[in-house]
Design a binder for these strands. Structure first.
Lengths: 208, 208
DNA sequence: GTCTATAATCCGATAGAC
DNA sequence: GTCTATCGGATTATAGAC
């Protein structure tokens, strides 16, 4: 048994019953060892929980960086928003964990590694927006301000959906997400963006 | 000692140490009684926690309904967004609790009373948007869709701020909130809204 | 309504043998 | 690295006396 076996099952327990369900004793029992054995791999419970949180950020990062395969700033921008949504819908509990308050993890303030991971998500959106501004697709506003607005909207909408406030299935929510996103972008886009979107919507309407 | 004494101190404990800090034993000790006495007022812990959650929604509602004293749809719209922000900044832990996942409260799914309270918040924003559309301040879009977009943005931005991701003090964040909000509204406003806003901004610039 | 006493679990963590 | 044994604590909740 190694550190990775523990982490894998800790994630499993978290997905099933939330953070409070991840206990050293339960973990040991399920892995067929006794609790003290775990302390050879993790100094304490917090340390182990932080690895679970890191796994959440790692998964999120995977979905985001997929957007870098897009061939234009416009495509990478759209794919970033979609990748973020995909992550949230595929791994709602990990998504929730990314934004969990510090005391939920048993710590007063977040360790630097978590703060840095979260900042990385913000920076990724930032880069996508800057690209679009430079390409003349978005108005020449402050990229950081614009990306914060978009990030806030995406996160808020996903939170509200995952909370169960919207009575719609996942497929409908996907449409709502993009339509609402467009309402936000609309006031910040350039005529060029609008023209490209129109062509895209027409192509989609013809094929779908 | 009555149910209200218990609730008041339960809120106090929650504000100090989060939900897990609200235990029947600790509650009893602080109130100068023994734990079994509490069970004469609350059937179990969950029931008591739900009262704390209700208190969070009650406080939020107070801040929102204050917006109804505005004399025009435009004013009530702005005051609703500001009241929501005020609530979040004055009572961040209660704000957090409003959106806490069900398992945090020790329940599998939210009881109807919580769901209804949350729906009430959505409906309030809905009404503010509809008023503005009817008054010609916002474009004639679907009021429910528009208010969801605005709610998502406000909630997301506040969440990100309260999470500690934005390195700015409260006063700066207030500006960010309104400026970001304006970027969202911009694409949905009418020329009339824009004209009124311009006058308002000028007046503010002259006085501030 | 409040008490004492107690049942029945769960937890994190450590000492020391092997 | 894993075990046994254990410390020292927490929790919800109930039975039954007053």
């Amino acid at each position: 048994m190694n550190r990775n076996d523990i982490l894998t099952h800790a994630c499993e327990l978290y997905l099933q019953g939330g953070i409070e369900a991840v206990s050293m004793r339960r973990l040991a029992r399920d892995l067929g060892v006794t609790a003290p054995a775990l302390y050879k791999h993790y100094g304490n419970r917090e340390e182990m929980l932080l690895d679970v949180v890191s796994e959440a950020y790692r998964l999120c990062g995977e979905h985001l960086t997929g957007a870098l395969s897009g061939r234009t700033p416009r495509e990478r921008f759209r794919m970033a928003g979609e990748g973020y949504l995909d992550f949230a819908l595929k791994h709602p509990k990990f998504y929730e964990m990314m934004y969990a308050p510090a005391h939920t993890l048993g710590v007063k303030i977040f360790p630097d590694v978590v703060t840095a991971r979260m900042a990385g998500v913000g920076q990724f959106f930032n880069d996508r927006v800057r690209e679009c501004i430079d390409a003349g697709l978005l108005q020449p506003l402050d990229a950081q301000e614009v990306s914060l607005t978009l990030w806030a909207h995406a996160h808020g909408l996903i939170s509200i959906y995952l909370r169960g406030c919207l009575h719609m299935d996942e497929e409908v929510f996907r449409s709502v997400y993009f339509e609402s996103g467009w309402r936000v972008i609309h006031g910040m886009a350039t005529p060029q963006y609008e023209a490209e979107k129109e062509l895209e919507d027409m192509a989609e309407g013809a094929s779908g």
